[in-house]
Computed example of a mutant assay.
Amino acid sequence: MVSTHHVDPANAEQARAWDGTEGAYWAAHAERFEPALTDYEDAFFAAAAIAPTDRVLDIGCGTGVSTRAVARRASAGAVLGVDLSSAMLEVAAAAVEREGLGNVAFVQADAQVHPFDAGAFDVAISRTGAMFFGDPPAAFANIARALRPGGRLALLVWQPFERNEWMVEIMGALTAGRGLAPPPPDAPGPFSMGDPDRVRSILTSSGFADVEVSGLEERIYFGTDPDDAHRFVSGLLAWRLEELDDAARACALDALHRTMRAHHTPVGVALGSAAWLVTAHT
């Protein structure tokens, strides 16, 4: 794995989180995060239309579940996974080695400013990793330069906060009695690309054409049973409880457990989600 430490100042806060405690938690629980988006995989990879000889850029690759899936499809090509998190990339590299995938490389870098070779890739993908750029137009212009003429872009991004049951229910439980303010829609974060018109505007101004945005709704998974899901989610979002006193914290955790119980299904704890599948060409 190659590391480059140049991070755009607009992404400094994201770098601190993803190459800090947040990224470390994801890395430590990779086996829990990686299956969460299973129900989106078929539609996402169909849209990416990866050919056996394609050179693919995986943006915000995390622990590499999408990178490995791409590597198996582009068996005579190559894939480069890029992420801010050194901890997650270590997990990704170990998994690639275990699977014996020889066509994968990783770089710890800020894709907004990393000096990719011009026209080096046939396809760029990002599965819920493209919503965190501090300067999306600059980031996607940089990605567009890295693609050959006619290259493809495929993104999976979340629809607005209120359409995502998983976030509404979980955050509602953890903030019970304190109000629930959704994040600003254009701030870096999970829902920053929730407005299709904004997505089209950003990509078109960044050098992409034929931008298409289609809606998908699937379940995402948080654990095998309510106790399991409760441990996982309360650890992931422990920062939400830090300012609470003991009584309020216990109340929030109890509300979270009730939410996990309410969404227990035969295949585990699953909540509804809504995403946009975005495709474009250079």
Score class of each variant (00 low, 15 high):
W158E: 01
D135L: 08
S86W: 01
F133E: 05
A49N: 09
G235T: 13
G60R: 04
F208C: 08
L89V: 14
D254T: 12
A250D: 12
S206D: 08
T224D: 12
V213F: 10
S192F: 04
I170W: 02
L80D: 11
T38N: 11
I50N: 04
L153E: 02
E22D: 09
F106K: 02
P9C: 00
A247Q: 09
A49I: 04
A120Y: 00
A250P: 05
L147P: 14
V70T: 15
P137H: 05
A111H: 06
R200Y: 00
L174H: 05
S205K: 03
R240A: 14
P190Y: 07
H257D: 09
G177V: 13
L271F: 06
V113T: 13
L216I: 12
D122E: 11
E169F: 03
Q108G: 05
G272Y: 07
V79Q: 04
G102P: 09
Q14K: 02
A118G: 15
V267Q: 09
A238D: 14
C61G: 10
L174G: 11
G223L: 14
T53G: 11
A247H: 07
D186C: 06
T21A: 12
W26Q: 04
G20V: 10
A255N: 10
R258N: 14
S66P: 11
G177W: 10
V278P: 02
L253V: 11
A69C: 02
T204A: 13
A95N: 04
N11W: 05
E217I: 10
D227L: 12
G60N: 04
R145A: 05
R73I: 11
A87S: 09
R72C: 00
L37Q: 08
P190W: 05
A17T: 08
P137S: 06
T175I: 05
V104A: 05
A47V: 12
G172Y: 06
G102A: 14
E97V: 01
P137L: 08
L253F: 02
D245E: 14
I202F: 09
N142I: 13
S273E: 02
A247T: 11
E162Q: 09
